[in-house]
């Protein structure tokens, strides 16, 4: 299918000239996020994230596996971020688009390389049994900025997921059913949240949380992941026009303010779930 160039010149020009007068095509402010809503499914670790019309489902599951030979005392955390055609006809299974690659790589960097989940706590028996935590990210509806929505969903899911409890008896590990023993939450070092900026023309015009039309018109994008202490974990600028240092520093300042808002929404949702 692949429908890349379907926006008209009118919409492209309107978007740019409106931006110059400080107006965005959906009426929100330059640094506004769309309405963020988090919903939890029936099973633990199932989270629906709605960012405007963008919808992402995150599902966490666990399984006992043999550890990697070079890391015998560490559990495994796996991410599956394939984008299905369901989200938008531009995504065709088997042929990952640049956006898809970018999203998977960024999620991998933000959560994996930063060691968000304490993998050593996932070890049951060194060399023999560890937990494999699988994070499936399903992109249901694409209206721009799926990365931020996915990150928020993953954080909310990691915070609420519970794996079955295990008791180790010598060389034997007994995995308890959820009915026998209360399941245990994951141990998380910190919660990084992504904030994505879009840039237009020569980088002079900057917006937060680009929608799908804005993503198609923008000339560069910058994603920043910050943790709850407002420390920068990852900065990802995948191609596009060059940005000045001032611009990047300004982004960090804006991101720091936005992260607090997003964290409070996540924490509120997580708290209401735990009740």
């Amino acid at each position: 299918m692949g429908q890349e160039n379907k926006i008209s010149n009118n919409n492209r020009e309107f978007l740019l000239s409106a931006l110059k007068s400080g107006t965005r095509v959906d009426g929100r402010g330059i640094y506004d996020y769309r309405t963020l809503r988090i919903e939890f499914g029936e099973t633990s670790g199932t989270v629906y994230t709605y960012l405007g019309n963008t919808k992402v489902l995150v599902k966490i599951s666990s399984q006992v596996v043999r550890p990697y030979v070079d890391r015998p005392t560490e559990g495994i955390v796996q991410f599956n971020t394939e984008i299905a055609t369901l989200a938008s006809p531009v995504f065709d299974a088997g042929k990952p688009t640049q956006m898809e690659v970018n999203i998977s790589r960024t999620i991998e960097k933000v959560f994996h390389r930063n060691r968000v989940v304490d993998t050593e706590s996932l070890c049951i028996l060194a060399n023999r049994k560890v937990w494999n935590i699988r994070v499936d990210v399903h992109f249901l509806d694409y209206d721009g900025n799926m990365l931020d929505a996915a990150c928020i969903g993953i954080v909310a899911a990691l915070k609420t997921f519970k794996r079955p409890d295990v008791t180790v008896d010598g060389e034997e590990a007994i995995i308890h059913s959820i009915l026998d023993k209360p399941p245990v939450p994951l141990s998380i070092n910190y919660a990084p949240i992504c904030v994505t900026f879009g840039f237009f023309e020569d980088g002079e015009y900057m917006i937060l949380d680009p929608g799908s039309l804005e993503e198609q018109v923008q000339t560069a994008s910058l994603t920043m992941a910050l943790n709850n202490q407002s420390e920068v974990c990852t900065i990802n600028k995948a191609g596009g026009i060059p940005l000045s240092l001032d611009q990047v520093l300004r982004c960090i300042k804006i991101a720091t303010a936005k992260i607090e808002e997003i964290h409070s929404i996540i924490n509120e949702a997580v708290a209401s779930q735990k009740k």
Binding site: N10, F14, S17, A18, S21, T23, R24, V25, D26, G27
Partner: peptide, 18 residues
Amino acid sequence: IWVNAGEESHKKTVMIGN
């Protein structure tokens, strides 16, 4: 649906669209 509220009034066009 195509909407136009004039050259210089982007805000109005967006509003009418909404």
